[in-house]
């Protein structure tokens, strides 16, 4: 749930206060971008989808009734935008089958405090992780991104995706297991370092 401050910012945004909207953007933009990137793995499209997500959220913010956390409400809009995007990409890939893959795009993160080699390793692992995430079925990807990237509780995931708790547990297990299989070389590398 959000704090009283968050609530005040949301109420001001509902009244059309654009400074409050700007504050909401700075509070949630990074999480929304990260969520979208994990869902679509297409760096070039992330900002456009995030922008559209916020615009739609502000146009509909009067309907937000504080029943769920604001971020969940925002992520639901982002999820719908990602689905629309993936549907368009699917249609485009049928029309242009040889177009460049989204996996080739660069990924930019906020942490500049790393040396070049560490950065390279991190980028490589991030790229592998995002590529592996992208190959998961949508329902498994959603639950894994929400739990492990966005740190949602099981209850919040169940509420956001309208699933039962048992479904959240079993899908999260399947998602992690599937991801472990796809990232086997990286996990073994880590194990060797650890031993």
């Amino acid at each position: 749930m959000q704090s009283a401050d968050d609530k005040d910012i949301i109420i001001a945004s509902q009244a059309g206060d654009q400074q409050a909207m700007s504050r909401l953007i700075s509070l949630h933009a990074s999480a929304v971008h990260g969520f979208i990137l994990s869902m679509i793995n297409d760096r070039a499209a992330v900002e456009d989808i995030a922008q559209e997500t916020f615009i739609r959220a502000f146009l509909a913010i009067g309907k937000y009734e504080f029943r769920a956390p604001f971020r969940s409400w925002l992520f639901r809009i982002a999820l719908n935008q990602c689905r629309d995007h993936l549907r368009k990409v699917k249609v485009r890939s049928i029309i242009h089958p040889f177009k460049r893959s989204a996996d080739d795009t660069e990924i930019e993160y906020a942490d500049p405090g790393q040396n070049a080699l560490q950065q390279l390793i991190q980028d490589e692992r991030s790229r592998a992780l995002h590529a592996a995430l992208q190959r998961l079925p949508e329902s498994l990807r959603q639950v894994l991104v929400l739990r492990d990237l966005q740190e949602y509780s099981y209850e919040e995931i169940a509420a956001l995706l309208h699933w039962r708790m048992g479904t959240v547990k079993s899908r999260l297990f399947r998602a992690r297991k599937e991801l472990a299989n796809r990232l086997k070389p990286y996990l073994e590398e880590n194990r060797e370092k650890g031993s």
């Binding site: 990260g34 942490d111 990232l183 880590n190």
Partner: peptide, 13 residues
Amino acid sequence: QVRAMTRQQPSYA
């Protein structure tokens, strides 16, 4: 390990 690797992802710029 998968959980740790996923959680180590830095925040998006």
